[in-house]
């Protein structure tokens, strides 16, 4: 490993020259290129974009303008103990016209669980975002009705979080304590 100020200077010069990997598809490329923080990758042959969560709203608008008519699915994942950033909001966008699918993943830290809502752009994201709020406690900024959807209104906790118990009822075996 080379030492000294020269080597360090060389490395810093080389960094900007590194080409950002972008998809070949012109629509996807045009959509992702303006978002400098977005990282594109292929997961099992499917287009995935990893995006800072604050840009989800503006990315949704850009995606709609680029021809993604439908937010097929919005969900979240809890990576407790697996990753540094605990949650991830995953939105699936579909373009019927171009037969294209794009998955947008936004890491959400546990201490700041507010994400821009997709509902102003995609009204169909309404129920999905309510489900995420219900199950993970991630709130969506700009959502018209951020209430629980599946669980009762007075429910405590968010069931799909990894630290939420799976509902075991302790069973007491009375016979076990008997002395024969």
């Amino acid at each position: 490993m080379p030492d000294g100020p020269e080597a360090a200077a060389e490395e810093t010069v080389e960094e900007p020259a590194e080409v950002r990997s972008l998809p070949e598809h012109p629509i996807l490329k045009g959509l992702i290129e303006p978002f400098v923080d977005a990282e594109w990758l292929l997961s099992a042959g499917q287009h995935v974009v990893i995006l800072p969560k604050d840009q989800l709203g503006s990315f949704g608008e850009a995606a709609k303008a680029a021809g993604f008519e439908m937010a097929v699915d919005v969900t979240a994942v809890d990576y407790l103990g697996k990753r540094r950033v605990r949650f991830e909001v995953v939105a699936n966008l579909l373009s019927v016209e171009h037969a294209l699918r794009l998955r947008v993943r936004c890491p959400v830290p546990a201490d700041d669980t507010v994400v821009p809502s997709l509902v102003p752009t995609y009204p169909g994201a309404n129920f999905f975002e309510r489900e995420i709020y219900d199950m993970f406690g991630i709130t969506f900024d700009g959502h018209p009705d951020m209430t629980r959807i599946l669980m009762p209104d007075d429910w405590v906790g968010h069931p799909l979080r990894k630290d939420f118990g799976i509902g075991d009822v302790p069973v007491q075996f009375k016979e076990a304590n008997k002395v024969i």
């Binding site: 097929v72 994942v77 990576y79 169909g124 309404n126 129920f127 799909l160």
Partner: peptide, 15 residues
């Protein structure tokens, strides 16, 4: 699975 999510068609269609 760490997470298994089903995109239920009826759930969206209720909207």
């Amino acid at each position: 699975p760490l997470r298994m999510h089903t995109r239920a068609p009826s759930f969206a269609n209720i909207q």
